[in-house]
Structures are given as C-alpha cells and as structure tokens.
Amino acid sequence: MDLAALEKQLRTLQADAATRIAAAASTADLDELGSSLLGKRGAITEILRGIGALPADDRPKIGVVANEVRAALDASVTARRVALSAGELLERIERERVDATTPGPAPRIGSLHPIPETIAAIAEIMASFGFVVAEGEEIEDDVTNFQLLNIPEDHPSRDLWDTLYLQEPGRLLRTHTSPGQIRTMQAGGPPIRVILPGRCFRYEAVDASHGFEFHQVEGLLVDRGATLADLKGILDELAKGLFGSAARTRFRPGYYPFTEPSVAVDVSWPGSKDGWMTILGAGMVHPVVLENGGIDPETHQGFAFGLGVERIAMLRHDIPDLRAFLENDLRFLAGFR
C-alpha cells in the first residue's frame, strides 16, 4: 500500500461518513456512528493500521491527512448532535407534558385553639414586663381557694363564687386562679411577677356568656413599692397589647375580698361594639392575703389581677357565644389557622 492509496481510502471514508452523519436520525445513532468512525477501534484507526507498510518519510504525511479527516468528522458529528438534540428535547417535552393547572391536594392546615392561644398572647405581653408563667392544681382546698384569700366561711362574699365541691370534705374545684397567689407567695418571697393561667370551675348554668368550665389568667406582682398607679400602667399596656394600641382603658372601683383597693377595668377600642367592656378585675393585694402568703404587708405591697380568657377571646375574635369554645366544631376551629 502506498501513500496515495491510503490517502484515497481516508478521503473516501470522509465523504461516505459525512453522508451518514448527515443522515443520522437520533443522537443515539449518531453516538454509535461517531464511535464506529472515530473510536479506538473505529474506521480511521483501522485504516491507519496500514501505516506500518509505508516508508518512514511518508508516515508523517499520512498522519496529517488522518488528523484532518478526524477533525472534520468530529466537527460534523458535533454539529449534527446539536441539531438532533434540539429536536429530541422538544419531543421529550411534548411527551412529558402534563396539566399542571390542577388545584393540587388540599393543604393540611390545622389550628390552635383560641383559649390556649389567648393565654399565650397574654403571657407574651406580660413577659415583656418580667412576668413569668406558673400553673397550679385545679383541685383545691377550701382554705386556699377561699379562706386564705380573705373569704371566710359563712361570709356573704362567698356568694360571688358558686362552687363545685368534691365528695371529699374541704376539697373543691378551684373557682378562680386566685389561690395561685397564695401558693406563689408561699413558694418564694418577693419580688414576685407571675401570671397563673388555667382552667376554673363554677356551679353555673351554661349560657352565651357563662360556663361551668372556663379559663382565667391571674397576675401577681409583689415588691417594695408597687402602687395603684403601677397597676394602672401595667393593665393599660396589657389592654393595648390585646386590643390594639388605640385601645383605651377605664379604671373604676370594684370589690374583691382579696384586694384593697379593688379595681374593675373596662376597655374600649375603635370598632368595639358596646362602648366600655369590662375585661378584668384587679386591685392592690389585701394586707391579710399578703400576711397569709407569708409576706409582711408593712414592707411589701403589690397588685393582682384576674381575667376571664373566654371573655377576652370573645371580644378579640368577635365571637358572640362562649359555648363555641367547648363545642369544638371543626368549621369554627378552622377559623383560627
């Protein structure tokens, strides 16, 4: 074999391969064709096997030609691949097309009940004034629920609390969170800043604004110099936190055996329906209660407040009937997501 014959073989291969590359129908065919031409055992390599028969001077020459053919075919394959893959991509896209406009599965959205969430909102506001959360027992005794709170047996102020008693003498379901005041004071001395949320019970017929099970949040602050003015300041902030910064508060005398002076707090806010709404009771801790809690009323003083969680939640969420909270209709609860 001489130089000319080898070169002719290469050129023939080039021309023939160019036609086949142009005719390749898919990138897969092209890949196969490419390796059959240009691969380790491809046609070019096959032709170059004859190179050993050439004289030494001719060998570099045929090498130049072979490289030229290889480069040309490589370029053709690349060009053809670009052309083919664009088409194939379009085809793939069409093949895979779906209707992505379906609404999709319904979201799995749960909800948190407004009663614990209202308690959490109150806790968050009060935390900014240094009040921490504590919780007590719901089964109480008469002594702590009443007597230590300056509500003696056979005192007419007991009429303020209709009580559910246990069969065990002296035991009852707490009628308010106020016994937590006593337990907090007994557990550790001042300074005290605490809120005590929890479930309470009363012997009470159920209607739109009363239930025999309900929730309260008690607040207690005891230090050396807290005043009625401080009580006003803190509770005004609480009201604004709950009902918006435009909310206004009205403080007026109230009556609770465990505070002296006692305070009733009304709130009104833009959009509130009925003018002044009573939201909580409060007052300076009664000296007898401080004493019962082991605190000297001559060196320390403070204030306490108690609010009905259901009432606050009703006002904030515009709920007309308190029974909805224990009814737990999922359609109602879904509103609190």
Partner: peptide, 20 residues
C-alpha cells in the same frame, strides 16, 4: 380612679424562670 396617674413599676425584677 381616673385621676390616679399611670406608671410602670421599675424595681425588683424576679429571677428568670422558663415558661412551663
């Protein structure tokens, strides 16, 4: 009561306790 001023107590913060 409406004539009593409004203030925020400033002294004697109790130690921190994590919420239960």
């Amino acid at each position: 009561y409406e004539r009593i001023p409004t203030s925020i107590p400033s002294a004697d913060l109790p130690p921190h306790r994590p919420s239960p």
